[in-house]
Design a protein around this nucleic acid. Structure first.
Lengths: 137, 137
DNA sequence: TATTGTTATACTCTATAACTATA
DNA sequence: TATAGTTATAGAGTATAACAATA
């Protein structure tokens, strides 16, 4: 997820912060989720998710619904307002990508993509994910 | 300033957070500065700088010294420990850059640089800095 | 009058630990 | 026993507003 300064201002005007927006974004990619799942996806403590979901419920972006089979868990899902907010986010990201890349000469674009790809490969060789045991190559 | 996850962990182990490190970084680029100047550079409220400097004084990275001509202001400057910490940061950034780019074929590297340059130009056309009056192109 | 930094107050994000209800 | 989510507690970063000292 990419959030520009302008987008941040707009989000704030709608009652969203970056962390809450991140949660909405994950929710839109995963569908209705337990808070535990969201905590894992956001790499954040379950307690933190409680707070973020509380705020998003208060401001009308999501609802907590009972989990169909596990009575300990709740499923977080969008309200119509929440779905609409994510659609706006997606459109803004596409618009922003167009502003950055549209009409870029093909050769320049492919040079950029190849260079970034190479950097990502190098990063992949260096990074060990938190959930895979930590440490360096 | 670029801070990787590993660097964050290391900084935390030394008693530094990202915000405090950012302040040290600006201080090293600007030399001894008033808190007002740091607030401007970090794009953060003066009150916030008070808190960051308090913490950096407590942990021995910087000192407050009287401003030579303006008795309202204080100059923030490094302790030897603070200078050493910034030198370590700079070395780590260079090491990281080497890991990302060293031995990259010249053609790939220049393709990347040109592509990024083009993206930055497009961004420059879109962005109006906060301190220049705000708004979009 | 205007500016520098502070105290007062408040909100958000974040974490760990202890607890309740359920599996 | 283990797991899902909560309450309790705490710390960091951030902001605005009011205030003191100085310019």
């Amino acid at each position: 997820m990419l959030i520009t300064a302008d987008m941040s201002r707009d989000l704030a005007a709608r009652g969203l912060t970056q962390s809450r927006t991140h949660l909405l974004w994950e929710l839109s990619h995963r569908g209705p989720s337990t808070q535990r799942e969201l905590a894992g996806a956001l790499r954040v403590s379950p307690r933190n998710v409680t707070g973020l979901v509380d705020a998003l419920v208060d401001t009308g972006f999501v609802v907590r619904t009972p989990h169909p089979t596990d009575r300990r868990a709740t499923l977080v899902d969008f309200t119509p307002k929440g779905s609409a907010a994510v659609r706006v986010l997606e459109r803004e990201q596409k618009d922003f990508a167009r502003l950055l890349f549209q009409d870029m000469p093909e050769q320049q674009f492919s040079g950029l993509v190849e260079g970034l790809g190479a950097v990502l490969e190098r990063l992949r060789g260096l990074v060990v994910r938190e959930d895979s045991g930590g440490g360096h190559a």
